[in-house]
Design a protein around this nucleic acid. Sequence first.
DNA 1: TACTTGCGAAACCGACCGGTTGCGCATATA
DNA 2: TATATGCGCAACCGGTCGGTTTCGCAAGTA
Lengths: 108, 108
Amino acid sequence: MRRDVFQAIADPTRRAIIALIAIQAMTPNALADKFDITRQAVSKHLRILSECELVRQESKGREIYYSLEIEKMKEIDEWLSRYRTIWETRMIQLDDLLATMKKEKEDN
Amino acid sequence: MRRDVFQAIADPTRRAIIALIAIQAMTPNALADKFDITRQAVSKHLRILSECELVRQESKGREIYYSLEIEKMKEIDEWLSRYRTIWETRMIQLDDLLATMKKEKEDN
DNA sequence: TACTTGCGAAACCGACCGGTTGCGCATATA
DNA sequence: TATATGCGCAACCGGTCGGTTTCGCAAGTA
């Protein structure tokens, strides 16, 4: 099954998981305690996050610690950068407009 | 039905629609020509984009032109900024590490 | 006025999604 | 060794999703 970063962050629970494991690595049980769902449900989310390489896992005895693969988040940033250019350009244009209006007012 | 920006951008067709209407306003029919799906399917996507205010529409006779509400894209950027801080910090730490290694090498 | 065109809404359908329960397996621990 | 714990996997279930077809309405056009 081919997974997508955008699909991965679409679910609010998965975004919450991302927020938690960005701070520190956590086990599925520890995560399940935070959200009112079963450990198995968390595991499913982690599997989806794994499939699109948003998550790294490290076994420690019988426990598995999951942490965020921050590099992968850049992919979203790259996609967004195109639109960031647009709104920044608009902002500059707005600044220019305001400056022009101010100048015209002063000239009167 | 409450909609979410993250859910809206999860679908690849919707991201393609966003990319198109970011450049110029388009009608549902014009959009449908670009993707091998019916106009009605496009309309559904536009409705979802509308529900989370990612899209603005302007009627012109019997045609409706849809364009991107770029401001709403900032919401994604705000969410992402938190993680951007993390990877930028890592980058700096990596720079520091490399600088230290270089210095140590020079000292030998 | 009759016809065409652009659109949204609704009903329907197969696929997928997020959740559950119920395993089986590996790793501590008594 | 027997028992408890942490985990992934599989089966199942109701709801949602992305698509279609069908329809009705409003706006141009003959």
